[in-house]
């Protein structure tokens, strides 16, 4: 009991400490040195209307590469942890399949989700959204049918191919810049007309790679966890 109160006291104290630190900061008026410089020049030098996308894929592109690698590492590690065991028997059609409403709903939603996912990915340089957000929608589209018809899950091998090739495509786009005497991950193909679908150079291509990779990766993770079955 005493340790519980001690732990609570610790958590409260830590929060109070953080609060007294952060309340001393100029809330609402941050210095934004690097941020303001990016806001000033991003539209001209990168050409994406969504400046967050410029930061994610151009200015801090290697962060995003690291982030993709972390997802890949997590999915690989989950495979390493879960993969070794014999599969729990897949629930048979009677007890695993969804009802009429779920099955029809999924059939209707599946194409819609795919369209929305790709829309969000391909407009990532123009509107809020992008490869990560769209990729999650794609993963949902892939996993939803498994709820309705557990026997029809996407093939893990296909997902692995998509995931590997999309990741390689991201790096290959970065390496292509080296051939033109630029640094790694420099956006190519010119900035284009601000606000057009075909603008911002290679950024939409990079986001497509990100979206496919995130979608495949998350779908693989979710399917892997779902395979464990109820109350493993």
């Amino acid at each position: 009991m005493l340790t519980r109160y001690g732990s609570l006291l610790f958590a409260t104290g830590f929060a109070f400490l953080l609060f007294s630190l952060f309340i001393a900061l100029p809330m609402g008026e941050p210095p934004t040195l690097a941020g303001q410089a990016i806001l000033n020049e991003a539209a001209n030098s990168v050409g994406a209307a969504n400046i967050v996308t410029s930061v994610v894929l151009a200015y801090r592109g290697i962060d995003t590469l690291g982030e993709l690698s972390i997802l890949f590492a997590a999915a690989t590690a989950v495979g390493l942890v879960l993969g070794g065991q014999a599969r729990a028997p897949r629930p048979s059609k009677e007890d695993g399949a969804g009802g009429f409403i779920l099955q029809t709903g999924v059939d209707l939603l599946f194409p819609l989700l795919l369209v929305v996912g790709f829309y969000i990915i391909l407009h990532g340089h123009l509107t809020p959204g992008g490869g990560f957000q769209g990729g999650v929608v794609l993963a949902a589209a892939l996993v939803l049918p498994v709820l309705a018809r557990p026997e029809e899950s996407p093939s893990p091998a296909a997902l692995a191919w998509v995931e590997g090739l999309a990741g390689a495509a991201f790096i290959a786009t970065g390496l292509a810049a080296l051939a033109y005497d630029h640094a790694f991950l420099t956006p190519l193909l010119g900035a284009g007309q601000l606000g057009d679908l075909f603008s911002a150079g290679t950024l939409p291509l990079l986001y497509l790679a990100v979206g496919l990779k995130v979608g495949a990766e998350l779908a693989k993770l979710l399917l892997r966890l779902a395979e464990e079955g109820p109350a493993a």
Binding site: R60, I62, D63, G66, I70, A73, A74, A77, L80, V81
Partner: peptide, 28 residues
């Protein structure tokens, strides 16, 4: 600074995966 954080996390996640790789319950 943030790039260092990202790659530190990558090393960490890969490390978790490898540490669980001996696949004994105690390791998990």
């Amino acid at each position: 600074l943030f790039n260092i954080y990202v790659f530190y996390e990558l090393a960490a996640v890969a490390g978790y995966g490898l540490a669980a790789g001996s696949r004994t319950p105690a390791a998990q």
